[in-house]
């Protein structure tokens, strides 16, 4: 006669549906989350051409052969505004004619007006006034990017749109066309292309700067320190 009772050892080792499904869910989740995170990690070595992108928006243009800075920025990111007022605004004056300074969009989700501002800059670029809009956005940062009181970023799209119109008018743009361009597919696809190029280059936050294709990773903790580091790097490149 065969034994019909189950072996207690094997019986106990069977996983209950609860444990089994839990394990499967956790393993699948870990694989998916981990996989997505890892594939989004970029490489630090990127070609200067792909960084620069086709018909790049430049603040300074000394030609394709010149020492080239590419900055990925988010117009509503306070640190980017700090980089502008503490580092790159002066750089523009001091290195004009000697370097090419390319600006690419990397609007972050955390900033509700970042995309709108990027679209304003791109729409101005379509009328050949990119640098003017870029400076206007940063010179007036507290006006459109911060909530009243200045403690947090603003999400007031209406106020931003009105101010962007003003900047466009001051820059001598055709405001009607500027408004149309802001919502155009062309502008949107340019922003998407910049974002894709940034991710490919391993950009994860803003501001991220590349000098001749090499990521600039400052050690300093103040804008003055970072500015000095960037200047010495540029000087080395300009006078090898």
């Amino acid at each position: 006669m065969t034994r019909t009772t189950r072996n207690p050892v094997t019986a106990r080792s069977r996983l209950s549906p609860n444990v089994l499904i839990t394990l499967v869910v956790l393993v699948v989740a870990a694989l998916v989350f981990g996989g997505v995170l890892l594939t989004q990690r970029g490489d630090d070595d990127v070609t200067p051409d792909s960084l620069r992108g086709p018909d790049a928006n430049t603040v300074l243009d000394a030609g394709d052969e010149a020492v080239t800075i590419v900055e990925f920025l988010d117009y509503q990111c306070p640190a980017c505004a700090g980089y502008y007022s503490g580092i790159t605004r002066q750089l523009e004056e001091d290195y004009a004619g000697r370097i090419t300074f390319v600006v690419r969009n990397f609007p972050l989700q955390a900033h509700p007006l970042a995309r709108q501002a990027a679209a304003a800059a791109e729409a101005a670029a379509l009328q050949g006034r990119f640098a003017e809009m870029y400076r206007a956005l940063y010179d007036n940062f507290t006006g459109w990017a911060l909530a009243p009181g200045g403690q947090s970023v603003s999400d007031d799209t209406g106020r931003a749109a009105a101010l962007f119109d003003d900047y466009a008018r001051t820059a001598g743009l055709d405001v009607e066309r500027f408004r149309r361009d802001i919502t155009s597919d062309e502008v949107r696809s340019r922003i998407e292309a910049d974002l894709a190029a940034g991710r490919e280059a391993g950009v994860t936050g803003t501001p991220t700067i590349f000098v001749d294709g090499t990521r600039f990773e400052p050690a300093g903790s103040s804008y003055a320190d970072v500015a000095a580091e960037l200047r010495s790097l540029l000087d080395d490149r300009l006078n090898p």
């Binding site: 549906p17 989740a29 989700q109």
Partner: peptide, 25 residues
Amino acid sequence: RVDVALVVAWYVVIAALVLQAFWDY
């Protein structure tokens, strides 16, 4: 029989939403 798994799956969905919403961070 699957209550723990249900709770864990629920957590995973919330975690995925948190991950997605703050992806940049």
